[in-house]
């Protein structure tokens, strides 16, 4: 007995939702390849393949059918997001370990699709940055800063055979966030630091353009109804507001909202990571709180923390708070005089 409704909207399936999100990632990925060289294709491919492999393994172990779950696209999206968050040209096992934690630990140990408390891609990222900080900070330099941009074949070599002939110094550079931190430690002001080579118009060179493309993809998703405005708006608002307050308090040492919005994984976090429906808040008011707090934490971690970027940790921390947020922000039922308070 299936019961009503006897019709379902054809324009809606998990596969379609995931496909739309991935389509929205295409411009950013292209921009990444354009500015940082073809290394992204290698890491993307590796993340997707490892993702599929671990997913199939987990499904097999748990006795689930492979076809509907491998093709639902969720693991591909996780892989794609992780690939965009990790430095390219890192050794292959870095991607493998990242996906292993993302898929096996963060997703399947919690019960698979729809059950995970934490965003899988961010769990993978967090594990890597804690375990392998050196690898995680060797970001390829944007094309016009690099002495040498490895081509596709070279990228494969670098990823699978280690550094070999080319020295990492030839193609990596500090990220803008790192660079800012070092410069500030050396007693420079933020304004001085931002005249340095890794900085572009308002964010990091190259990275800012990728961020713009992420923004574009995000806006496309908004227009398409794949995501709603609340989490991205609150997230970006949280970043901007916190950065602004910081800057007002200490103008010499703080980079300001624009820089924070367009550097690191802020845009990706706003539109693609914090919006992951499974681990995000689901109530209208809760989404504003969730997004706003995640944005605020991102800036605080960037400014006061020891890690280069704060998006992963802030999203993971807020993931933990989601049940609480949701419980206390239940919407008002049609015709009810007060919002509902489900007793916990």
């Amino acid at each position: 007995m299936i019961g009503s409704p006897h019709v379902v909207s054809e324009r809606n399936s998990v596969r379609l939702v995931m496909a739309k999100v991935m389509a929205a990632l295409v411009p950013a990925t292209l921009a990444h390849a354009w500015f940082f060289g073809p290394g992204i294709w290698v890491s993307l491919l590796l993340c997707l393949l490892f993702g599929l492999f671990f997913e199939a393994f987990a499904l097999g172990m748990r006795g689930y059918p492979l076809k509907p779950f491998l093709t639902d696209g969720s693991v591909l999206l996780t892989g794609w997001l992780l690939a965009l968050s990790l430095p390219t040209l890192a050794p292959w096992w870095l991607y493998a370990v990242g996906m292993l934690f993302a898929v096996l630990v963060a997703k399947h140990l919690y019960g698979g699709l729809g059950q995970n408390l934490f965003n899988p891609a961010m769990v993978g990222y967090a594990v890597l940055i804690i375990s392998f900080p050196t690898h995680m900070t060797q970001w390829p330099a944007p094309g016009d800063l690099a002495i040498h941009v490895p081509g596709l074949a070279e990228a494969f070599d670098l990823v699978f055979a280690g550094q070999g002939s080319i020295s990492p110094d030839a193609y990596t550079s500090a990220t803008p966030l790192d660079s800012l931190r070092t410069q500030l430690l050396n007693g420079k002001t933020a304004a001085e630091a931002m005249t340095q080579p890794p900085f572009g118009y308002f964010g990091g060179k190259g990275g800012e353009m990728v961020a713009v493309m992420v923004l574009l993809g995000g806006v496309l998703m908004l227009m398409n109804g794949v995501i709603t405005w609340r989490i991205p708006a609150a997230f970006l608002g949280g970043i901007a507001l916190t950065a602004l307050v910081m800057q007002l308090i200490d103008p010499t040492r703080q980079a300001g909202p624009l820089f924070h919005l367009f550097s690191g994984a802020a845009m990706l976090g706003a539109f693609f990571i914090a919006t992951d429906p499974v681990s995000a808040s689901t109530t209208p008011r809760g989404q504003l709180i969730y997004g706003g707090l995640a944005g605020m934490l991102t800036v605080l971690i960037r400014v006061f923390g020891g890690y280069p970027d704060g998006v992963a940790f802030s999203v993971l921390l807020l993931n933990m708070a989601v049940p609480l947020i949701d419980t206390y922000t239940q919407p008002r039922v049609f015709g009810a005089s007060a919002p509902r308070r489900p007793r916990v």
Partner: peptide, 16 residues
């Protein structure tokens, strides 16, 4: 498939 908590249902629900 399992629920992915996408909230589409909540947005469609006339009873909020």
């Amino acid at each position: 498939l399992p629920c992915i908590r996408c909230g589409a249902c909540a947005r469609a629900c006339p009873a909020d």
